[in-house]
Structure formats: C-alpha cells, structure tokens
C-alpha cells in the first residue's frame, strides 16, 4: 500500500545535512510509490529544493521565515505541524540530529502517535515498515513497528545509504508562510556561543581525538587540532601528555580525568594504560596509532596503525579532506 511520506530536511551552516538525503532514501523505500514531500526551514532554504528533488522529493515545502533561521524547539514544532496539517503524511522521517531528536518527540505527542528514535536500518517486511534501532549503547538492537496511522521515526545519520541522485528529477516547491505564535516564543534565545576553534566539549563530542606521550611536545600535541577541526571532534589527552605539559589537565581522559563514550575515539601515541582505558573503552569505535606494536591500546582498538603519529596524522588529514569533498 503506498504511503505519503514527509521528510524533514535540515540545513546547517549553509549545507543540507546528509541525513536528510538518507531519510529521503528511506522515504523512497517505504512510500511504495506514494508521494514524498520534504520540508525545509529558514531564509536560505529554497536553495535545497533541487537537491531534495534529485534525491526523491516530489514536493518541497519551504518555510522561508527568518524566525526559523535559529532553531528553537517550539517554533520548529509549530512550523512542522503546519506542514503536517498541510500534507497529511502517513510516515514522517526526521534526522536524529541534535535538533531533530529534540523536536521530533514533540511532534509525536502533538499527533498522539508512537515514535521510533534513532533508527539505523529500515526494512519493509510483508508491507510493514520495520525499524531497527540500537539499545544499550549499541550492545543490542531492537526491531520495532508502529501501530499508528501516522508512523514517525528519526534516522541516525550515516547509517543508511543516501542513494544515487537523479538530477533529472524536479519537485514542486510550495512556499508556506509562517509566523510564530506567542506561545511558541516561550523560550527565548539570548546568545549562541559558537564553539571556539578548540572548543568541542570532550564529554559531549561524538568524535574524540586524543594524544599521549607520543606527541612528544606541546607543539606536537597542537598538531591534533587540524584533524579535530575537520571532524568537528574534541581533543583529549592521556595523563602522561598532561603531566608532561603537552596538554591541559582539562583535556585528560581516564580514570582520574573525564570519561568519554564517543562514536569514534582516535588514540594517537597513547600506550593504553588501564587508567586511560577506564575513561574511553566504552567508545563505539576505537582507532589506535602507535609506534609500539605491543602497546596495550591495540588490544581495545578496532583499527590500528603501527607507525609514527607525526607521519600518519597528515595523511589522515588528507584522506578526511578527500572524503569530505566527495560527499559534499
């Protein structure tokens, strides 16, 4: 049975997030020929109509209003509900980003429907949409279905392939006017502190790049920041790097420092004493670069490179730049 699918397309810093296109590829699967709409918010949003069309959107609802340039949960919920009321979707897909995961549950409750968060896979089984999502921090997975008429799910970024774009496709652009109601302005934004170039907070970061004694000096340690910036990662340090004065103690990861559980932890020149492992071994993916093939860090690493970090680091920077330019 075909379904009408609505996808929330999210921009950040002038670019459309990949997860929005990944959600569109899910939409194509679950629509079964039904109509697919996307919606974009903010004054710059009409620029995304084409790319959304290429990735399968039949309609794009554009809410070109400056109040939507800055994310606020109440406003986004209100604006999104306006689109929902207009399009009347059977399925709603939202990227599980900081903003998406924030307002999606409000939509679910406003519609009084169930919601399946943070999906890493979506399948059609006997006409039913089956969502797979991690539980216990990825130590197990659960398959879920919704019992409602409107199915709402958030999609974890970078898990579902976005599919090949079809540049011949076009979409109908529907501009909706939006004015925030008084009640949606209950929360006021006073200021946004952009992360300083070195500012991603360790405990909250999805990617952490840490340096140890192998960075050899303060200058050596500083070299981590280029990669960190490229990956929007936080920089951490082992206790010995802090002791040696290469890094500040506020960056220390470990038993007596901070405990981090990012998706990706890259340990550069860290041998992997238990004191350090206690602070990071629950990271989802661990990468180790160390000269010493016997270093205990390799025992917990998912991927390891035996080599000098100062040789490897610039190569990684290059490769990440390539990857980024490919996906852009």
């Amino acid at each position: 049975m075909s379904k009408k699918v609505l996808v929330f397309a999210e921009g950040r810093e002038g670019r459309l997030r990949n997860v929005s296109l990944e959600a569109l590829s899910v939409a194509k699967l679950v629509a079964e020929g039904g109509e697919i709409a996307a919606t974009v918010f903010g004054t710059q949003s009409s620029q995304f109509v084409d790319i959304l069309a290429h990735h399968g959107a039949d309609k794009v609802y554009v809410l070109d209003h400056s109040s939507l340039d800055q994310y606020l949960i109440e406003i986004y919920k209100e604006a999104f509900m306006q689109v929902v009321n207009e399009f009347k979707p059977d399925v709603i897909l939202i990227g599980h980003t900081a903003n998406g995961r924030d307002f999606a549950p409000k939509i679910a409750q406003a519609l009084e429907v169930g919601m399946i968060s943070d999906c890493t896979a979506v399948d059609l089984v006997d006409g039913k949409i089956v969502f797979t999502r991690p539980i216990y921090a990825g130590k197990a997975f659960v398959k879920k279905v919704s019992k409602d008429d409107i199915i709402l799910a958030t999609i974890r970024p970078n898990n579902i392939s976005m599919g090949e774009p079809d540049s011949s496709r076009t979409a109908e652009m529907i501009e909706l006017s939006y004015t925030p109601s008084e009640s949606s302005l209950r929360v006021q934004i006073k200021d946004v502190l952009r992360k300083a170039s070195k500012g991603v907070d360790l405990t909250e970061a999805n990617i952490v790049i840490s340096g140890g004694r192998g960075t050899k000096s303060k200058e050596g340690f500083e070299k981590l920041y280029e990669l960190a910036e490229l990956l929007n990662a936080a920089v951490g340090a082992s206790r010995s790097a802090c002791d040696e004065g290469y890094a500040d103690y506020s960056l220390q990861v470990g038993q007596t420092g901070k405990v981090v559980t990012p998706d990706l932890y890259i340990a550069l020149g860290i041998s992997g004493a238990i004191q350090h492992l206690a602070g990071m071994s629950n990271s989802k993916i661990i990468v180790a670069v160390n000269k010493d093939p016997e270093a205990p860090i390799f025992q917990v690493a998912d991927y390891g490179i035996v080599g000098d970090l100062f040789e490897v680091l610039p190569m990684l920077v290059e490769e990440v730049k390539k990857l980024k330019s490919e996906s852009a």
Partner: peptide
C-alpha cells in the same frame, strides 16, 4: 569526583575502573 567515581565503580563492579 575521582573519589566518587572510584567508590561507585568498586560498589558496582568491584574494581576501581568499573570494568
């Protein structure tokens, strides 16, 4: 906080690292 963490870890997993 390090002391709290040590106690919690030992209380729960009987070792200071919480393994």
């Amino acid at each position: 906080p390090e002391v709290t963490r040590t106690f919690n870890n030992i209380e729960r997993q009987s070792n200071p690292w919480g393994i």
